[in-house]
């Protein structure tokens, strides 16, 4: 089961999050604002963010089949202000839809780091949680949160589009409450994530951060 090669839990936060999910790298102007104003502004920003989720049109496993109906008339995710975008530069939600091979993980890391903050990762299906039915495969990862920060898991094999919509509703509530802070955690614990990524990807030829 557990191997000594990896620490199985990320280290404690080196410093507490900025209030209400605001970025940990604040500009000079934001840092000088009084706390009450900062919180009020963050609430407004989070409300806007939650209602404009741009999903990257990317699928890794069988779960991406369940994503297609969301964009069409029957389930219609555009009524929640969500839409698919073709490139990471234009999107802020990355869905890992099912099993993730090591080769794909490299591309996922590259895409995730290119996305502008704030950004959120949704792990879809059992495979991203504990490996699912591919738990003993040599080529698929068992835990997504060792390599990229996951804000929300949607369990199932595969989850139906209704479950996905329910999950996105929860994600919106988390964003509004300022609790979806994976992108902050990734910046704070960059060393830990990079260490895990480089342990698995042996032919590492990416830059340290893909701006």
């Amino acid at each position: 089961m557990a191997s000594s090669k990896f620490p199985l839990a990320p280290p404690e936060h080196s410093r507490p999050h900025a209030p209400m999910g605001e970025g940990c790298f604040l500009g000079e102007t934001e840092r000088q604002q009084p706390l009450a104003l900062k919180e009020a502004l963050a609430k407004i920003k989070n409300w806007f963010r939650a209602n404009s989720l741009w999903v990257m049109a990317y699928g890794t496993g069988c779960g991406s089949i369940e994503l297609r109906p969301l964009t069409t008339a029957r389930f219609d995710m555009e009524r929640f202000g969500m839409a698919m975008r073709p490139t990471p530069r234009q999107s802020n939600v990355l869905i890992i839809s099912g099993y993730l091979s090591v080769k794909s993980l490299k591309r996922v890391i590259r895409a995730y780091e290119q996305m502008p903050s704030p950004k959120w990762v949704v792990g879809l299906g059992s495979c991203t949680i504990n490996g699912g039915m591919y738990w003993d495969s040599y080529n698929t990862i068992n835990r997504l949160d060792l390599y990229v920060p996951v804000d929300l898991y949607i369990a199932g094999c595969m989850p139906r589009p209704e479950a996905l919509l329910e999950g996105f509703g929860v994600l919106m509530e988390k964003i509004k409450a300022g609790e979806a802070n994976g992108w902050n955690h990734y910046l704070e614990q960059m060393d830990w994530y990079k260490e895990n990524q480089k342990k698995l990807i042996t032919d590492w030829d990416l830059p340290d951060y893909n701006w």
């Binding site: 557990a2 191997s3 504990n130 738990w135 003993d136 495969s137 040599y138 835990r143």
Partner: peptide, 16 residues
């Protein structure tokens, strides 16, 4: 041995 390889490279979540 795929299980042995998995244990070395892909750690499982405890409780599975």
């Amino acid at each position: 041995d795929t299980v042995e390889y998995m244990n070395r490279h892909h750690p499982s979540r405890p409780g599975r």
